[in-house]
Simulated assay, not measured.
Amino acid sequence: MFYEEIFKSLNKRHIDYVVVGGVALVLHGIVRLTADLDLMLSLEEKNIARFVDVMNEFGYKPRIPVKAEELLDPKKRDYWLKEKNMKVFSFYHPHEAISLIDIFIYEPVDYNELKKHSVKMKIGNFFVPVTSIDDLIRLKKISGRKQDIEDIKVLKEIKKYEKKQK
Rank of each mutant, 00 (worst) to 15 (best):
G59L: 13
A35I: 15
L136G: 02
Y79V: 14
P65K: 00
D73C: 10
N11H: 01
Y161K: 15
K46D: 13
D53P: 04
I103N: 02
F51D: 05
R32L: 13
P74M: 05
E83R: 10
K75L: 14
V66I: 11
P129W: 07
K12H: 04
L81W: 13
E96R: 15
I149P: 00
A24F: 09
K76T: 08
Y17D: 04
E157A: 12
S9A: 14
N11L: 03
V19P: 01
R77L: 07
L37R: 08
L25V: 05
K156T: 08
E4L: 03
S143G: 09
I101H: 02
E150R: 00
G59E: 11
V54Q: 03
V20M: 09
E157I: 11
F127K: 08
F126C: 04
K166N: 15
P129Q: 12
T131D: 04
T131C: 14
V88H: 01
L71C: 08
K146T: 00
K76G: 00
L155C: 04
N112S: 15
I48F: 00
K115T: 06
S143M: 08
M55L: 08
D36Q: 10
E44W: 08
K153N: 06
F2N: 12
H95R: 15
M86G: 07
F2Q: 11
I103P: 04
A49S: 14
D36N: 14
L72K: 14
K75Q: 14
E4W: 04
K164V: 11
E96D: 14
K166F: 03
F104V: 13
L43V: 03
K141S: 06
P94K: 04
I30N: 07
T34E: 06
G29Y: 10
N85E: 13
K8E: 02
E83G: 02
R138M: 09
K67R: 10
K160Q: 10
I64S: 03
I123H: 07
K82C: 01
D134E: 15
E44A: 11
K164H: 10
V130H: 06
F91K: 07
D38A: 11
L155K: 02
N85Q: 13
